[in-house]
């Protein structure tokens, strides 16, 4: 997917920003915060699942020298507003960063912001250990986040997750509250 051409507005700003980041990594701090104001926040027709600001922010991250990338990804996430945090999480699978950004997933999963929890369970979650991954999937069920956000769900779902899910289902049943139908598939491992 070509994010650069999928972006619908602000190309001149973005191209200049990418060049500035490549020349001097500290430039990314202010550019990263401003991306939504230049490249839009709506979902991109040519890149489903990506918004203009997310695509622009991913391209800014990709412009960083590889050696600087882990430090800036961490810093931009930790000092970011939710849209910036979301953009970092979304970009992780595209970045040459190995498993270094796993602490960011742990942070996102601890939040009660459904957007961040969901974004933490994309393809980069392959670096999450199984215990943390199960807790995050169960949290999705608990918060009503659709399970389609979870990458490789059927591959990774295991008997322990089935036990945990059954526990939640039983609590909900005892309380007379609803339980999402789609989560019943987790019980069939």
């Amino acid at each position: 997917m070509d994010l650069r051409s999928a972006i619908e507005t602000g190309h001149a700003w973005l191209d200049d920003g990418v060049a500035r980041v490549a020349a001097g990594p500290p430039a990314i701090t202010r550019l990263f915060a401003a991306a939504g104001r230049h490249c839009g926040r709506a979902e991109l027709a040519a890149a489903p699942g990506w918004t203009g600001d997310q695509a622009a922010r991913a391209l800014l991250l990709l412009a960083l020298p590889t050696t600087d990338l882990p430090r800036y990804a961490d810093e931009l996430y930790r000092h970011g507003d939710p849209a910036e945090k979301l953009a970092v999480l979304k970009a992780l699978p595209l970045l040459p960063i190995g498993a270094e950004a796993v602490p960011l997933l742990h942070d996102a999963i601890r939040t009660n912001d459904t957007r961040l929890v969901a974004a933490a369970l994309g393809p980069y979650a392959r670096h999450l250990d199984q215990a943390a991954w199960r807790q995050a999937v169960l949290k999705c069920v608990f918060m009503g986040v659709p399970l389609k956000v979870v990458d490789r769900l059927t591959d990774r779902a295991d008997a322990e997750l089935a036990t945990m899910t059954a526990g939640l289902r039983d609590e909900r049943a005892a309380a007379g509250r609803s339980f999402p139908d789609e989560a019943l598939s987790l019980l069939e491992v």
Binding site: A118, G144, P146
Partner: peptide, 15 residues
């Protein structure tokens, strides 16, 4: 934009 996530309500309590 925010109060629903892909059609699901998030108005229930936190965890």
């Amino acid at each position: 934009q925010d109060a629903t996530f892909e059609g699901s309500s998030i108005l229930r309590g936190g965890s």
